[in-house]
């Protein structure tokens, strides 16, 4: 891949809750069309990182640039910044009092001031792509978890963001629904969407990522292309972390030893 311009650039980020440092001096870049997957043990600060990027958390140091513009220095109008950043949460968080279509149209119409007809056309096209066009007039409670999460993704996409942030979007789903959501994200990757993904699905991470970023205790321990990272992690901590997912393999080895 040719070197593209960075869409997101984080330099020396610090995030503290009172005295507790959650992220310390973290820097990373996501280039246009690049898919970055952040993995790491629980509490390593990866979700907080995403929340800092779209201003749901204040930061105590460092800078975040979106398309070369700092969104930290000076007076940030977060609502305008967030229109360029699509974020999908673990718990979908659709608006329960609105239909699927209304959920999707709220941002384009109210935040971006777009025409209903035009926004509806786009929303329906996206819904069709994720296989939910026939559910556009349903209410969130009538949908399964996987369906809700696909709607949440469409809701973010419809803002035509520069970058999509995914925060453990399959963590609350029943196993049989995980796939349908991951397939949607894989589809986006194929189409060149710039994405920063936090996940625990290692196989998916390997398949979708251009680069894996391994975080522990609030900082990046190592980052590498997926094949290299998963086969030859450099750091001890990454190896230990990956071993957790290798439990099945250990048993097979024992059997061979018999």
């Amino acid at each position: 891949m040719a070197v593209a311009r960075p869409v997101l650039k984080i330099t020396g980020l610090h995030k503290r809750y009172d005295q507790l440092e959650v992220i310390g001096n973290l820097s990373l870049e996501v280039r246009k069309g690049e898919v970055l997957v952040v993995i790491g043990p629980s509490g390593c600060g990866k979700s907080t990182l995403l929340r800092c990027i779209n201003g749901l958390e204040t930061i105590q140091g460092g800078d975040i640039e979106l398309n070369g513009q700092s969104i930290i220095v000076g007076h940030t109008r977060w609502n305008l910044v967030r229109q360029q950043i699509g974020m999908v949460f673990q718990s979908y968080d659709l608006f329960p009092h609105m239909t699927v279509l209304e959920n999707i149209l709220l941002g384009p119409m109210k935040a971006q001031g777009r025409e209903r007809a035009e926004a509806t056309k786009e929303a329906e096209a996206f819904l069709d792509r994720v296989g939910l066009l026939d559910r556009k007039d349903s209410f969130p409670r009538q949908l399964s978890g996987g369906q809700k999460q696909r709607v949440a993704i469409v809701r973010a996409l419809c803002m035509n963001p520069e970058i999509m942030l995914f925060d453990e979007v399959t963590a609350s789903l029943d196993p049989e629904m995980v796939r349908e959501v991951l397939d949607v994200i894989l589809g986006l990757a194929e189409q060149g969407m710039t994405m920063l993904i936090v996940t625990h699905e290692m196989a998916f991470a390997r398949a979708v990522a251009d680069k894996i970023v391994f975080m522990d205790q609030g900082s990046i321990v190592e980052s590498a292309p997926p094949d290299i990272f998963f086969q030859n992690p450099v750091s001890d901590r990454a190896r230990k972390f990956l071993n957790i997912f290798q439990f099945e393999g250990v048993k097979k080895e024992e059997r061979h030893n018999d």
Binding site: L56, N79, G86, M87, F89, D93, L106, G107, A152
Partner: peptide
């Protein structure tokens, strides 16, 4: 009201006023 309702309203670029009004 789950805190996430406000956050996902913010996340799609709504102003605080719009979050209150529509969500």
């Amino acid at each position: 009201m789950p805190a996430h309702q406000r956050e996902s309203g913010r996340a799609i670029g709504l102003t605080e006023g719009q979050v209150n009004r529509y969500i």
